[in-house]
């Protein structure tokens, strides 16, 4: 049976390195603060994150594409690929009170739930430990970004493909080739050449 929002959010916070058992009440307050999930169909833009949204969003089910405008090619391109049980936000709005440079698109049907910034602030005033969880959650996203940076610095396309297959297996299995090429920062032609060269198929 699929996990409930409560179980998913609880598991997420319990998995953070900063989590300690005395934060149980804080996590309970966070869970209570979440609205019920909404469903978005595959291909839909997550318009709920239109500016000036500073809320915290939890991806309960499905996969999201995080898209940005590539300033060099002046086109929208994949920035990140988000698996279920992750938090996502408008970084520009939340951190700097600016118009977001990124938007989210459902890669599959998705279920998303929000914790409003107003509720977050209320929880913070009663449960200051939420700051530690916030910092820890942010630091974990950073760790993922820096790990991916190492992959993006590999000069060989095949090495990048292998990195995704070995270290992001869940994403590798679900991404189509166009998305995979964007995720590893190579052209589609380079990706196809790499698959042709090894004689391996993606799946």
């Amino acid at each position: 049976m699929a996990k409930t929002l409560e179980q998913l959010v609880y598991d997420f916070f319990r998995g953070l390195p900063a989590y300690t058992t005395d934060m149980e009440d804080t996590v309970k307050a966070i869970i209570d603060g979440f609205d019920q999930p909404v469903i978005k169909k595959k291909g839909a833009i997550i318009t709920e994150l239109a500016p000036p949204n500073k809320d915290f969003w939890f991806l309960c089910d499905g996969y999201l594409k995080e898209i940005y405008k590539n300033p060099f090619l002046n086109e929208d391109a994949l920035f990140n690929f988000i698996p279920p049980s992750n938090v996502f936000v408008n970084e520009d709005s939340l951190f700097y009170n600016k118009r977001p440079q990124h938007y989210y698109k459902a890669y599959t049907d998705v279920a998303i739930a929000s914790l409003s910034n107003e509720k977050f602030q209320k929880i913070k005033s009663k449960y200051p430990a939420i700051i530690k969880l916030y910092l820890s959650g942010t630091a974990e996203i950073q760790k993922n970004r820096r790990a991916r940076l190492l992959m993006l610095r590999m000069s060989n396309t095949q090495d990048r493909i292998d990195w995704v297959r070995n270290r992001r297996g869940e994403l590798y299995k679900i991404m189509d080739r166009v998305t995979l090429a964007q995720y590893i920062g190579v052209s589609r032609a380079s990706l196809y050449r790499a698959f042709d060269k090894t004689g391996k198929s993606q799946f």
Binding site: N80, E91, F95, G185, S187
Partner: peptide, 23 residues
């Protein structure tokens, strides 16, 4: 500390932009 961590996260985002360029 929150601001410093957020700034660091933005720097990683900017570096990711660098590395997503195919040229």
């Amino acid at each position: 500390l929150t601001s410093l961590i957020e700034l660091s996260m933005t720097e990683y985002r900017n570096t990711t932009y660098e590395m997503l360029q195919t040229s």
